[in-house]
Design a protein around this nucleic acid. Structure first.
Lengths: 134, 134
DNA sequence: TTAATAATAGTAATTATTACTAATAATAGT
DNA sequence: ACTATTATTAGTAATAATTACTATTATTAA
């Protein structure tokens, strides 16, 4: 029945590395990083811990980013901009508080509004440069 | 080298059914529906056509909503609200034109802004009712 | 220290999607 | 309408991300 969680060495390292990274890594990117410190850790452990940490609110799970899930150890209120070409994600200091107007729109659907997510999509400088050369 | 596309019976039916559905179906949901009219069609054909139709701008691909991709045959400018419990997606008549403020925010990142997507997340009436009974 | 059990490593299974291939059928040009 | 070209299909196999399983290990409370 799984009660109080334990702070294992693996969970600790995963959390620390994710918080240091700032690149919104995928599970396997983080796995590669964590292996420098814990060479015998398994990918399944990384997935399981990311799941647990996200469920407990200690990290953020970024949904809808290409074929893989991405994670963010930075909990401060911010949004993201994603490169439509290479998939890179960077932070943006937007404040997407739902407005009065949002609540009115949502009222028509019968839903109870929890959150309004704003995602910016564009082309990152690196990809723009690459494109210019073709 | 793949030049001019052909309007096959399969592509026609997939497009028609998607336009009729209004439920933002996944590929396999649409596959089930289309099979009523074309019993021998394969799932791969549905995927391939959804890909082609989205690339040509005839339908919209709703990215990463849960584990499966969803599609929308309604091209009119609108946004979506998703139920965080059951995954159901409904339409919302929001107009998310990027504002002056958005462009200023994005300028700091060096990205060229293409689109601002707004997604509303909440609890749908059905799930709210279910929750009330527990 | 010890007992209870959450978490792990390693591996297998699952699931959505994509790739492959021989056969079929939509279109352009005659 | 006939034919050649080749995009598309059905069927199946392959891929890739994620999750599940299981015996073993290690964290925590008492």
């Amino acid at each position: 029945m799984e009660s109080r969680p334990r702070m294992t060495k693996q969970r600790q390292v995963i959390l620390e590395e994710l918080r240091m990274m700032h690149t919104h890594p995928t599970a396997d990117e983080l796995y590669e990083r964590v292996r420098d410190r814990l060479p015998r850790i398994s990918l399944g452990t990384v997935y399981r811990n990311l799941e647990k940490l996200a469920a407990s609110g200690m990290i953020r799970r970024l949904e809808k980013t290409g074929s893989q899930m991405r994670f963010d150890g930075d909990l401060h209120d911010h949004q993201h901009i994603r490169c439509i070409l290479c998939g890179r994600i960077e932070d943006i200091e937007a404040e997407p508080e739902p407005t009065h107007c949002d609540y009115k729109l949502v009222a028509g659907t019968g839903f109870r509004l929890i959150e309004r997510r704003v995602e910016y999509v564009g082309v990152c400088p690196a990809c723009e440069a690459k494109k210019g050369k073709m």
